[in-house]
């Protein structure tokens, strides 16, 4: 099954063998009988669906309603990884965000051939801009805006640093926008494709931005890291970009890497090579226009 599959066919496949979704270096087999999941997968992953008889998948996920009373009373959705249930169920309307969050967890548990940094990554002219940041730092908003204005989206959540080459492997997935960022992106980029808003999640209101066709098509093209920018959102602050020393950048990277301790010495080497090959900055981010201008200036050819 490839692009253009209608929603009925997709629902049927999701409800039986499961749909196979290729997300950068990972293959996910997803089964679900939930209409909201079929709709969201059809919207966001339409160009990433692979043949349902793909023999090997990295993650076998099922999203369904748990049985019992909950079928009728405040219905819920549960995330099953290979039929085990590692998380609390969430209200039924949060099924798709639950899939995205659960998948983050799966990747962070298994992707140890990469140094995995909690970070958004975009690329321009083969050079990657890494935006590590905790929730609330504004990385997803910046990532969405950059990916809609000339940069290629590599990832919203993970910088996958290849241990041997130091390059960044793309992980094209919907960008998770929260609260005010949803309206900002919708107003600024009328062409942006956003899924439905989910209210009252632990992160507030969430909506996902569909990655561009180009970002999905070029999922196999890694990029050389060039800049590391640590964003820090401060309402009303004057936007500025200040250099960060390599040592400081390495410490911060290690702190925001999911598997720095699992990788041991190799993690240190990969992180050290990364800061060696990049210019590092701290971005104080108050206004989207001003910050985009600063970030774009990084990639302008120097005169």
């Amino acid at each position: 099954m490839q692009a253009g599959t209608d929603i009925q066919t997709l629902s049927r496949i999701l409800g039986t063998t499961g749909a196979v979704i290729e997300i950068g270096p990972f293959l996910v087999r997803l089964r679900s009988r939930l209409d909201s999941v079929a709709a969201a997968v059809g919207l966001h992953y339409e160009h990433q669906l692979r043949a349902p008889d793909t023999p090997f998948c990295d993650f076998h996920v099922r999203l369904d309603r748990p049985g019992g009373l909950r079928r009728w009373w405040k219905p819920q959705a549960r995330f099953y990884l290979d039929e085990t249930s590692p998380f609390k169920p969430l209200p039924l309307n949060q099924a798709f965000p639950l899939f995205e969050w659960g998948l983050n967890w799966c990747i962070a548990q298994r992707g140890h051939r990469f140094l995995m940094v909690h970070s958004a990554v975009v690329e321009r002219d083969g050079r990657a801009l890494i935006l590590p940041g905790a929730p609330g730092s504004g990385k997803s908003t910046l990532c969405a805006a950059l990916s809609l204005s000339g940069w290629r989206l590599l990832s919203d959540e993970f910088a996958l640093v290849e241990l041997d080459t130091g390059r960044i492997t793309p992980l094209p997935r919907p960008v998770s926008l929260k609260n005010a960022a949803i309206g900002i992106i919708r107003d600024r980029y009328p062409g942006a494709v956003l899924g439905p808003e989910t209210h009252d999640t632990t992160k507030g209101t969430v909506a996902h931005l569909k990655p561009s066709a180009d970002a999905v098509e070029r999922a196999g093209d890694p990029a050389e890291p060039a800049w590391i920018v640590f964003p820090e959102f401060q309402a009303g602050a004057a936007d500025r970009l200040e250099p960060v020393s390599r040592g400081q950048a390495l410490l911060q990277l290690a702190d925001s890497a999911f598997n720095y301790s699992v990788l041991g010495g190799r993690g240190f080497e990969a992180g050290a090579a990364l800061v060696e090959n990049c210019q590092s900055f701290r971005l104080t981010y108050g206004d989207l226009n001003a910050s985009l201008k600063l970030l774009n200036s990084l990639a302008e050819p120097r005169s």
Binding site: N104, W105, T202, D255, S256, A257, Y260
Partner: peptide
Amino acid sequence: EDSKRTAPVLPRP
């Protein structure tokens, strides 16, 4: 039953 499980948050790096 369910209070032992957590919501799916990313493991703290």
